[in-house]
Simulated assay, not measured.
Amino acid sequence: MTVRKPVTEAYGPEVTGTGRVMLGLGARAGVPADELAAAIDAALRQAGLDAAGIAGLATVDRRAAEAGVRAVARRHRWPVLSFEPAQLAGVEVPHPSGAVAAAAGTPSVAEAAALLAAGPGAVLVLPKRIFARATVAIARG
């Protein structure tokens, strides 16, 4: 695995900016909407953010079409942005995972998807938070 330089990180609601705020989601296959929603709600609370302030949900392409992911996005009226593993692998993240790389073909899904979706110069508002079968990260462009 390649060593990646950490990206600039900025934590908490005190991080200001006019860029869009994107939620990155990694999950095992078939995780139901209620479980994903609970993980997302917990991450939003930890970041001091409200779901209404999130511009969209970003994830790896193979999860974007799953019923649970789509249902959570519909609930919040978030668009779902999907990225191929190779695109995500090109994003420098502060917390890469060898286990995720082996399973998903990229060392990061949640952090990389959030940063990529938030756009150039994005920073993590909330680094990845790992739940039972999902991982959530939040970035601001």
Score class of each variant (00 low, 15 high):
116 L>V: 04
38 A>R: 12
76 H>D: 00
29 A>Q: 13
5 K>C: 07
57 L>Y: 14
80 V>N: 00
42 A>Q: 12
62 R>K: 14
117 A>G: 11
105 G>C: 02
46 Q>S: 15
9 E>L: 13
15 V>A: 11
12 G>F: 11
84 E>N: 07
37 A>C: 12
23 L>E: 02
50 D>E: 14
4 R>F: 04
108 S>G: 04
52 A>V: 13
120 P>K: 13
92 E>D: 15
26 G>T: 10
16 T>S: 14
114 A>V: 10
127 P>C: 14
73 A>Y: 00
97 S>C: 12
86 A>W: 03
8 T>E: 14
62 R>G: 10
130 I>W: 04
128 K>P: 11
126 L>N: 10
19 G>A: 05
90 G>C: 09
28 R>M: 08
115 L>W: 00
95 H>R: 10
43 A>E: 05
19 G>D: 02
93 V>N: 06
31 V>Q: 06
140 R>E: 06
11 Y>W: 15
50 D>I: 05
27 A>S: 15
104 A>H: 13
64 A>F: 00
109 V>S: 09
75 R>M: 09
113 A>G: 11
43 A>R: 03
43 A>W: 03
132 A>R: 15
59 T>F: 04
137 A>S: 12
119 G>A: 05
73 A>L: 01
36 L>C: 11
124 L>E: 06
49 L>N: 08
133 R>T: 12
100 V>P: 10
57 L>S: 07
30 G>S: 13
120 P>D: 15
40 I>G: 04
15 V>H: 12
130 I>G: 04
40 I>E: 01
97 S>K: 07
12 G>K: 07
86 A>L: 07
128 K>Y: 04
63 R>D: 04
115 L>Q: 01
127 P>H: 14
66 E>H: 08
103 A>Q: 14
71 A>P: 01
27 A>I: 12
40 I>K: 00
42 A>N: 07
34 D>T: 09
42 A>V: 01
130 I>V: 15
126 L>G: 07
31 V>M: 09
47 A>W: 01
134 A>I: 06
112 A>E: 01
138 I>Q: 00
53 G>H: 09
123 V>G: 04
82 S>K: 06
131 F>H: 15
135 T>E: 11
24 G>T: 02
68 G>D: 03
109 V>Q: 03
116 L>T: 05
136 V>N: 11
94 P>K: 12
18 T>Q: 08
3 V>S: 14
9 E>V: 15
13 P>G: 14
131 F>E: 11
